[in-house]
Computed example of a mutant assay.
Amino acid sequence: MPRKSPSVKPSDGQARTRLARRAVIDAAAALFVDHGYAATTVAEVSERADVPPATVYRLFQSKLGILKAWLDVAIGGDDAPVAVTERPQVANLLAEGDPVRLITGFADLAVAINGRSNNVYRILAGAAEADSDAAGLFRDIQRQRATGQRQLTRALARLGALRAGLAEPDAADIVYAIMSPETYRLLVVDRRWSPRRYRSWLDMTLRQQLLG
């Protein structure tokens, strides 16, 4: 997507739309956390966000659309319509020629994403157990995560850095498990590790498992 010139400012309509989207996402996030996804209605989100229901449906189509938008913002760190894998930070990482720095960069990225998306990911996982549409979104997110994380093992394979005897598909499975939101939640939320401790463990474990 081409970037606009810095001199071009968004119209009042665009600014209002962006503010409305942000208000709805913030309101839904609070309600989903407090009351659960299933128990929250679009009408409640609309009232809390002070955005008319018709506008909520125009912007998101459904309650699941709001959840997906929250997840996108949490993963990306902002509301820019650019996938994480297409952002300069990832491109710069993949151009890294040092396997250790490459792994460290991906560990930092995983810590940031898991930290931001922990709540919404948990809510989506719970919703997927009872809602077929949520289950479909959950599977899509898992596939996207696997595809994005596979870039790390492909880069290491291109550098000839994977430890002897470790096939690239097996390396991808290891990364998928170790960098998962589930592992983050087990250590940081359940076991109360600090994000700094989790990041150090993740970096060290990835090096041990992938590089030997």
Rank of each mutant, 00 (worst) to 15 (best):
M1E: 01
R3H: 05
K4S: 15
S11N: 06
D12N: 15
D12Q: 15
D12G: 14
R18D: 14
R21Y: 05
I25M: 10
I25W: 00
I25F: 00
A27H: 11
A27T: 08
V33C: 04
D34H: 00
H35A: 00
G36T: 08
A39C: 13
T40V: 13
E44A: 14
V45Y: 07
S46A: 13
S46Y: 10
E47R: 15
R48W: 04
R48M: 06
D50K: 09
V51D: 03
P53F: 08
T55V: 13
Y57C: 11
R58E: 14
R58K: 14
L59N: 07
L64N: 14
K68P: 02
L71W: 06
L71T: 04
D72T: 14
G76I: 03
G76S: 12
V82K: 06
R87A: 00
R87L: 02
P88G: 06
P88M: 08
V90L: 10
A91V: 03
L93F: 09
L94D: 03
L94Q: 04
A95V: 00
P99R: 01
L102T: 00
T104W: 05
A107I: 06
D108C: 07
L109Q: 12
L109N: 07
A110P: 08
V111A: 12
A112C: 03
I113S: 01
I113M: 08
G115S: 14
G115V: 12
R116V: 10
S117N: 07
N118M: 09
Y121D: 10
I123N: 00
I123G: 02
L124D: 10
A125V: 11
A125F: 01
A127K: 06
D133T: 03
D140I: 04
I141E: 13
Q142W: 04
Q144S: 15
T147D: 11
T147G: 07
Q151F: 02
L152A: 06
T153C: 07
R154M: 12
R154C: 11
A157M: 13
R158K: 15
L159M: 15
G160D: 09
G160C: 12
A161K: 02
L162Y: 00
R163I: 06
R163V: 05
P169D: 01
A171F: 04
D173Q: 06
V175N: 05
I178R: 01
I178Q: 01
I178F: 00
Y184P: 00
L187G: 07
V188E: 09
V189W: 02
V189T: 14
R192I: 15
S194R: 15
P195E: 15
R197W: 03
Y198M: 02
Y198D: 02
R199F: 03
R199K: 10
W201I: 06
W201C: 06
W201R: 07
L202K: 05
D203G: 03
D203P: 04
D203M: 05
M204E: 13
T205C: 13
L206E: 05
L206M: 09
R207Q: 07
Q208H: 07
L210W: 02
L211N: 01
L211C: 01
G212F: 08
